[in-house]
């Protein structure tokens, strides 16, 4: 049975949920069972926010992630709040500029925000995360399904810059030999 649990986290407003929706959309189009959920506070901006995706070749009972295979964090607050139940040997990807406590020892530090800024728009950080995820899941989920889902789901007129950020994320993951 194939099953991957993925958690993305950051601050409210960073597009964490959209990234998770796009990942789940691509997975469904690739023929997987996928469930996407989120957890956020009442505020519209700020506060820790998480979005989760489960991909499987079997129907998914419990829709929330129990212990993530992949955990990505864009903010220290989100990292601290959502890092407690990681899978042993799970992959942790942390925004490079964060100062986080010791439990992040096994994490990959990744310049997500700096990479997003290369597109001219830091708001594309969520697409950089998707690029990383695309690389990590490349043996199961064709990159093109994610690109199609990005085209489908991002606001009108922004597909180009979002795809650019996505491809930057993918290419840098390749360079860093992430696994």
């Amino acid at each position: 049975m194939f099953k991957r649990e993925i958690r993305l986290s950051g601050s409210g407003g960073q597009g964490i949920i959209l990234a998770a929706v796009i990942l789940a959309d691509a997975a469904v189009q690739a023929g997987f069972f996928a469930v996407q959920t989120q957890s956020y506070g009442p505020e519209a901006r700020g506060g820790a926010s998480k979005a989760e995706v489960i991909l499987s070749d079997q129907p998914i009972d419990y829709p929330k992630v129990s212990s993530p295979d992949i955990f990505l964090a864009l903010s220290a607050e989100a990292y601290a709040k959502y890092c407690h139940d990681l899978k042993h040997n799970g992959i942790i990807v942390l925004e490079e500029s964060l100062s986080t406590p010791d439990c992040s020892a096994g994490a990959t530090r990744f310049p997500v925000l700096a990479t997003a800024r290369k597109t001219g728009k830091e708001i594309t950080a969520n697409m950089v995360l998707l690029g990383i995820l695309s690389f990590l899941l490349k043996n199961f989920l064709p990159k093109v399904r994610l690109e199609e889902a990005i085209n489908e789901r991002v606001p009108a007129g922004t597909a180009e810059v979002n795809l650019l950020a996505f491809n930057y994320g993918y290419a840098l993951s390749h360079e860093l030999k992430m696994q």
């Binding site: 789940a24 469904v28 069972f33 996928a34 469930v35 996407q36 989120q38």
Partner: peptide, 9 residues
């Protein structure tokens, strides 16, 4: 809330 907000195929 879970069923209303979650997405699945």
């Amino acid at each position: 809330e879970v069923i209303a907000h979650m997405r699945e195929g």
